[in-house]
């Protein structure tokens, strides 16, 4: 188990603190066995791991959708507990894998407004929030279109905007690059890089993790198996093999210069 926490910038309160988190689904299947993870403010971290490792399960704990197991989760110092759910859900923005699940309102504008409106924003302030969020993902001119008439990449971008509109402390993306063509994939990377929020990105797309996230953690069989610089992890062949992580054909992480 490599444990290298030195990479993250240590600010006063980390955006995310997960301590000893264990969870079993109601059918008895144990998905998490004591996860510890700290993400500092402003960090971009990739969460890697094979299918069924428990990544989505972990993500659903971050805003209290799943809970009731052992361990604690804190977002910017605030524990994820029932009495804080409203505030927690404002602070943690989750972008789900399928944008059709995320975009449920009749128009893009109403969808982006949903979160802030649920938090009590009204009128001009709400309008302004929606406009900035859509501008940040370059979708402002689609505000009045119904989401199901957009392309997949556009829907993914709107899904990011719905979450940005809530001005979250931490943005959590579940496989953001899946189903995107290379151009949309790069555009999304540009958007994410331009944001100054903490990002936790679940992905199977290892080059994408290398491109966007200086730090990665590997979740395997419900525990954090490795945590360190993305490039170091991707170059560690025994580690990669042990956790069913494979680089695309012809991709050499050593040859890529990262910041």
């Amino acid at each position: 188990m490599t444990d290298d926490r030195a990479t993250g910038p240590a600010t006063a309160t980390p955006s995310l603190e997960v301590c000893g988190l264990a969870y079993a689904y109601p059918d008895g299947h144990q998905a998490l066995f004591g996860v510890d993870l700290t993400v500092g403010r402003g960090e971009r971290v990739a969460l890697l791991g094979p299918n069924g490792a428990g990544k989505t399960t972990l993500v659903l704990h971050l805003n209290g959708i799943l809970g009731g197991g052992v361990g604690t989760v804190k977002v910017a110092g605030l524990p994820v507990e029932k009495r804080h759910f409203a505030e927690i859900r404002r602070r943690v923005g989750i972008v789900f894998q399928d944008p059709d699940d995320q975009l449920f309102m009749p128009t893009v504008r109403e969808d982006v407004a949903f979160g802030p409106a649920a938090a009590g924003l009204r009128g001009a302030a709400l309008e302004e929030r929606v406009r900035t969020a859509l501008e940040r993902v370059g979708m402002a001119e689609y505000a009045d279109r119904p989401p199901h008439h957009l392309s997949f990449g556009q829907r993914r971008r709107v899904a990011v905007a719905t979450v940005l509109a809530m001005e979250p402390e931490i943005l959590v993306l579940d496989e953001p690059s899946s189903n995107l063509d290379p151009a949309s994939r790069r555009e999304l990377a540009d958007i994410l890089r331009a944001l100054d929020v903490t990002v936790l990105m679940v992905t199977h797309d290892l080059p994408y993790a290398l491109e966007l996230c200086p730090r990665s953690v590997v979740l395997s069989e419900g525990v954090i198996a490795a945590d360190g610089r993305t490039q170091d992890l991707l170059c560690d062949e025994p580690l990669m093999r042990a956790h069913r992580l494979e680089l695309p054909f012809g991709f050499d992480p050593r040859s890529v210069a990262v910041a």
Binding site: I65, R89, V92, D101, A113, F114, A118, R122, L126, T162
Partner: peptide
């Protein structure tokens, strides 16, 4: 899909009533 949409709504602070967007 209904279940997943419900998750997404809860994640964005839905508490059972639709927020007022357009008055």
């Amino acid at each position: 899909r209904g279940e997943r949409v419900h998750l997404a709504m809860v994640s964005r602070g839905w508490t059972g009533v639709m927020p007022v967007i357009d008055e």
